[in-house]
C-alpha cells in the first residue's frame, strides 16, 4: 500500500519546527517507525515536518558530567561509539540490537523515544538513567525526567506543540554495571519483554521492565532484584496486570537475566 496524501516541509530552524507542530504537522525524524505506518495508512497526517536538517539535531556533546545526545543522533552513530566512555559502551550495546543496520542508519534515538512504541529499545532502556528529555515548545525548553517521559502506548509527556530536542544523560564511571536482555525470536522482531538493570557505584541500582504493551515499569530501587533475582523477578512480573502466562514468563526471565548480567560483572 501507498500512504494517503500529505504535504512535506523541512523546517530550517527550531522556531519553524515548533510553528509547524503548532499548525498540526506530524514531526518525523528518521522515519523508520512512521514510514511503515504511513505506507499502511495506519496514520494519515495531512502534513509532515522533517526534522532531520535542524541545526544540532544530531550529535553528542559532553559538559559538566552530562552527555547531551541530539535527538536526531542515529542508532548507528551510537552503535559506532558516538557517545564516549562507559555510558557510550552501554548505549552502543543497546543500539546494536535495534532492528537492522539499514534501519539504524536512519532511525534516531529521539524519534524512537518520542514515537513511544512500548517494544522499542530506547523506550525500554532510557528510563533506567537519571537523565532527562529536552523538549522545546513555544515557551522555550523544558526538561522531562526520562523515567516519566513515556506514559503509555505511543503516549509521551510531550505536548502536541513540543519537539524533542535532545536526551541528556549523566556520564557513568567505568565501574558501572549494566544488564540488558530482551526477548526477540529473531533479530529485529519487536521485543516481547525487555529488562535492564543499571548499577552505578554509590547509587541505588535501577531497573526497567518494558515491552509490556504499555508504559515501561521503572523500578527505582532494584536492590531487592539484585539480592534475590529469581523471586523478585517473579514478584515484579506477576504484578503486571493483563499479561498472558507466556508474556509473564518472558518478563520474569528478562528481569532475572538482566540482573544476572549485573551480578556476573560484580
Amino acid at each position: 500500500m501507498k500512504p494517503a496524501p500529505f504535504t512535506y516541509s523541512r523546517p530550517a530552524d527550531w522556531g519553524a519546527a515548533v510553528a509547524l507542530l503548532q499548525s498540526g504537522a506530524r514531526p518525523v525524524a528518521g522515519g523508520q517507525s512512521i514510514g511503515p505506518m504511513l505506507n499502511l495508512r495506519v496514520v494519515q497526517p495531512d502534513a509532515v515536518a522533517d526534522l532531520r536538517h535542524l541545526p544540532g539535531f544530531g550529535g553528542v556533546a559532553l559538559s559538566g558530567g552530562l552527555c547531551r545526545i541530539g535527538a536526531g543522533t542515529t542508532h548507528a552513530a551510537i552503535e559506532d561509539d558516538a557517545v564516549p566512555g562507559r555510558l557510550g559502551e552501554i548505549l552502543a550495546g543497546v543500539a546494536r540490537r535495534i532492528a537492522y543496520r539499514p534501519v539504524r542508519n536512519r532511525g534516531t534515538i529521539g524519534g524512537s523515544l518520542a514515537h513511544a512504541d512500548p517494544a522499542a529499545d530506547w523506550v525500554a532502556v532510557l528510563p533506567a538513567f537519571r537523565g532527562s528529555a529536552v523538549a522545546l515548545g513555544p515557551g522555550g525548553e523544558r526538561r522531562i525526567a526520562l523515567a516519566d517521559f513515556v506514559m503509555g502506548l505511543m503516549e509521551t509527556a510531550l505536548r502536541p506543540d513540543e519537539v524533542l530536542r535532545a536526551i541528556e544523560l549523566p556520564t557513568l564511571p567505568a565501574e558501572t554495571r549494566w544488564g540488558h536482555w530482551k526477548f526477540c525470536r529473531k533479530p529485529g522482531e519487536f521485543s516481547k519483554a525487555t529488562a535492564c538493570v543499571l548499577a552505578v557505584p554509590g547509587e541505588v541500582p535501577r531497573a526497567v521492565l518494558a515491552a509490556l504493551d504499555e508504559a515501561p515499569l521503572v523500578i527505582s530501587d532494584a536492590s531487592a532484584l539484585l539480592a534475590a533475582p529469581e523471586a523478585e523477578a517473579a514478584r515484579i512480573a506477576n504484578a503486571v496486570p493483563g499479561l498472558s502466562p507466556w508474556r509473564a514468563a518472558l518478563a520474569r526471565t528478562a528481569l532475572k537475566r538482566a540482573a544476572a548480567m549485573v551480578l556476573e560483572t560484580a
Binding site: Y8, R10, Q32, G35, P36, L38, R106, G188
Partner: peptide
C-alpha cells in the same frame, strides 16, 4: 514488503545502506 522488514529494497543512501521503501520523497 514496503514495511521496512524484508530488505529487498536496500540501497546505499548517503553512503550507508537504507530501506528505500520507507524513505519518502522529501527526505
Amino acid at each position: 514488503c514496503e514495511h521496512g522488514v524484508c530488505g529487498a529494497c536496500t540501497v546505499e543512501l548517503d553512503g550507508a545502506p537504507a530501506r528505500s521503501c520507507i524513505t519518502h520523497a522529501g527526505a
